[in-house]
C-alpha cells in the first residue's frame, strides 16, 4: 500500500495518507488530478474495481468530500481516494468512461447532493426522487425532521420528561 502511495505521490499532488487497516487506506487527491490518478491506478496498479462513489458534506468547512473506493483484486486491497470540492459550486469530472456503473453513482450524487458531473450520461435525470422541491436532501443543511413534520401528518407526542415531571410533583411551587 505504502509503495503504491509513494508511486502515486511522485506523479500527483496527494496528502493525508492514512492506513486504516492492512488492506485499506485513504488518501486525499487534488481535485484536478483525480481522474488522472484513478486512470493511472486502474491501468498500472490494477485497481480495476470501483466499489462506490459517495460524498460527505462538510458543512462547517463549506466543502464536499467525494470518496472513490477502488479495489485491487490481485493485492486484495482497497484504496479510498478523497477529493474536496467547493460546496458553493460543486462540479466534478466524470469517470463514467472508466466504469459503467459510475454514471449511476454520479447520477445519485447529483440528485442527493447537487454535485454536477458534466458529461456523465443522464446525470440530470431524476433517479430516486420524484417531484422533489427543495434542496438536495442529503446536504446537511436540509433538516429532514423539520421537513417531515411540516409536510406530513403526525400524531402528537405526549412525552413528559421524568425529571421535570418529578420535580413538578414533589415541589409544585418551584
Amino acid at each position: 500500500m505504502k509503495t503504491i502511495y509513494e508511486d502515486l505521490n511522485k506523479r500527483f499532488t496527494m496528502s493525508g495518507y492514512k492506513q486504516q487497516r492492512d488492506d485499506l487506506a485513504f488518501v486525499t487527491v487534488d481535485k484536478d488530478q483525480l481522474v488522472n490518478a484513478i486512470t493511472y491506478l486502474k491501468d498500472y496498479h490494477k485497481f480495476t474495481h470501483l466499489a462506490f462513489v459517495t460524498a460527505v458534506d462538510w458543512l462547517e468547512e463549506n466543502e464536499f468530500q467525494i470518496t472513490y473506493l477502488l479495489h485491487n483484486y490481485e493485492l486484495k486491497v482497497d484504496l479510498g481516494l478523497k477529493v474536496r470540492l467547493d460546496r458553493d459550486n460543486p462540479t466534478m469530472d466524470t469517470i463514467h468512461h472508466l466504469w459503467k456503473q459510475a454514471r449511476v453513482y454520479q447520477r445519485e450524487l447529483h440528485e442527493m447532493f447537487g454535485i454536477d458531473f458534466p458529461g456523465s450520461p443522464g446525470v440530470n435525470d431524476p433517479m430516486i426522487l420524484e417531484s422533489w422541491e427543495g434542496p438536495p436532501p442529503m446536504r446537511r443543511d436540509f433538516d429532514t425532521k423539520k421537513y417531515s413534520e411540516e409536510t406530513y401528518d403526525h400524531r402528537e407526542r405526549q412525552h413528559i420528561e421524568p425529571e421535570d415531571h418529578l420535580r413538578k410533583q414533589l415541589y409544585p411551587e418551584d
Partner: peptide, 16 residues
C-alpha cells in the same frame, strides 16, 4: 457524519 452503504444491487440492478 455519513454512512454510505455500498450494495451490489446498485451496479447489478441499474447499469448492468
Amino acid at each position: 457524519r455519513k454512512i454510505t452503504v455500498r450494495g451490489p444491487s446498485y451496479s447489478h440492478g441499474m447499469a448492468l
